[in-house]
Amino acid sequence: MGNRPLKFRILELFLDEKEHWNYEIVSKIMEEYGMKGDYHRDSINFDIIELASGGMLKDVEQKVDEEGIYKKGFLLHKYVITDFGKVRGSDACLRYV
């Protein structure tokens, strides 16, 4: 069960400096924090959007969700952490994985 604030954990998952799709992160967070349902799914995705518009994550690739892995007909986003994100992450005492 996750015990850190959601955005901290999301940043932590990105600290491996690899690119991750939003649906991968969302499902991992939901599993870790024992969350279920569309409401929490959208809420976590909104956290990722906020981190991206705050300049901590960078949107590097998009594709249309044709099979409905996440939300059919909507965009899927692939993000990578930015230098600013790493700085904020280390401010938040996140460890590098």
Binding site: F8, D47, E50, G54, G55, D91
Partner: peptide, 9 residues
């Protein structure tokens, strides 16, 4: 503070 926390919280 907001960029690493949820706004409602």
């Amino acid at each position: 503070g907001l960029d690493i926390a949820e706004p409602d919280v």
